[in-house]
């Protein structure tokens, strides 16, 4: 399988060149956020308050990690199902977000936002949390700590494996490869 190595912050030309079905190994920084963190970020945008993370060039990973056992930076950390973030994602994409990582299909509005604003959506293997934890070199909670597993963590990752699901030209890997629709 051909492998594309990506380094964060993501460059616009890198994102534009990705195609549904590409297999990526990502190194650099990504931010975890799931339902509650998304709700808070949208509230912050609505109230013209600063976001806890930068969006352009950034990756949001839909994940809520298990607690770090002694001596490890983080516990198991696989993706959560992405459609629950569909109502929030277009707004963040408009504000410059470059990549989302999760699992499962996105709705048409999110797919259109990705086409319009050049962002991509990738899947990590769901239920491979122990394996993916091995790609995380450092982790720190940077916002909404009181949300527990739903807080925003900044992860430093090395060769984090994902597959491009939705690209900037409207393709969907689940439809192309997985007998969907």
């Amino acid at each position: 399988m051909e492998v594309i190595h990506l380094q964060t912050p993501l460059k616009q030309e890198d994102v534009k060149g990705l195609r549904a079905g590409d297999y990526l190994l990502i190194s650099g920084i990504m931010y975890t956020a799931r339902d509650s963190a998304h709700r808070r970020m949208i509230e912050a945008l609505d109230n013209h308050r600063p976001l806890p993370i930068p969006l352009p060039g950034s990756i949001i990973y839909y994940a809520g990690p298990a607690p770090a056992p002694p001596g490890k930076p983080i516990g198991s950390i696989g993706p959560t199902t992405s459609y629950r973030m569909d109502s929030y994602a277009p707004r963040l994409i408009e504000e410059g977000l470059s990549m989302m990582i999760g699992k499962g299909s996105r709705n048409k509005l999110v797919q259109q936002a990705m086409i319009d604003h050049e962002a991509v959506y990738c899947a990590a293997w769901g239920g491979a949390g122990a394996l993916l934890a091995g790609c995380v070199k450092n982790a720190k909670c940077i916002a909404y700590e009181e949300l527990g597993p739903e807080a925003i963590y900044e992860l430093e990752v090395e060769n984090f494996p994902v597959m491009v699901v939705n690209d900037t030209i409207g393709q969907d890997a689940y439809e192309l490869m997985g007998g969907q629709q």
């Binding site: 809520g64 298990a66 516990g75 239920g127 491979a128 949390g129 122990a130 494996p161």
Partner: peptide
């Protein structure tokens, strides 16, 4: 293969197989 590796790693590293416990 990755999912199988994940299950083996979970046991040897004493981590949950999936973070959603």
């Amino acid at each position: 293969h990755d999912l199988y590796e994940n299950a083996k790693l979970a046991k040897s590293h004493h981590l949950p197989i999936c973070q959603d416990t």
